[in-house]
Amino acid sequence: MFGAEKGKAINLDGSKLSIGIVQARFNESITTSLADACLQELAAMGVQADNIRHVLVPGALEVPVALQAMAESEDFDALIALGCIIRGETYHFELVANESGAGVTRVALDFQIPIANAIITTENEEQAIARQTEKGRDAAIVAVEMANLLETL
């Protein structure tokens, strides 16, 4: 079982957690759907609305900078990165996908804070729409599970 010690249940109780969310505005209809699904799932796991800080940034490349500022504050148990990168006709897709992903990982490792990376990368808008709700929910679950796990380590 991912995130759980053998023989122990996964802890998805978010009632005592503080969560930071960074949402990219680029492809805003998709990222707003990601955020809506994420916020609904966080509420279902008991995360109080007052314990969620949700900020918007221009695009996926700006997400790691905002995550870093949140991590530096030490106010959060876990962070969530939300964005959508859709392949275009140029190399820009690879640059944004690779660099945003590397930035998110770097912040998580540098600050030892769990970050659920839900910056989705797709070939087209239809694929993004098909994934937006599930990936938003998944991000919430990963954030809560990993925050609780790290508390025990």
Rank of each mutant, 00 (worst) to 15 (best):
G3C: 11
G3R: 06
G3W: 02
A4L: 13
A4V: 07
E5R: 12
K8W: 00
A9H: 07
L12V: 12
D13M: 00
S15A: 13
S15L: 09
S18H: 14
I19P: 08
G20I: 00
A24S: 15
R25N: 13
F26I: 00
N27I: 08
N27H: 13
S33P: 05
L34Q: 03
A35G: 09
G46C: 11
V47L: 03
Q48H: 15
N51G: 02
V55Y: 10
V57I: 08
A60M: 07
E62H: 11
E62C: 11
V63L: 09
P64R: 04
P64Q: 04
A66E: 14
S73Q: 00
E74G: 11
D77T: 05
G83R: 10
C84Y: 04
R87A: 15
G88Q: 09
E89N: 11
T90I: 09
T90N: 07
F93I: 08
E94S: 08
V96S: 08
A97C: 12
A97E: 07
A108H: 01
L109R: 10
L109M: 15
D110P: 11
F111H: 15
A116W: 00
N117M: 05
A118V: 00
I119S: 09
I120H: 05
T122D: 07
A128I: 01
Q132K: 14
T133R: 08
K135M: 12
K135C: 05
G136L: 06
D138G: 10
A143T: 01
V144H: 01
E145L: 15
A147F: 06
N148A: 07
L149T: 03
L153V: 13
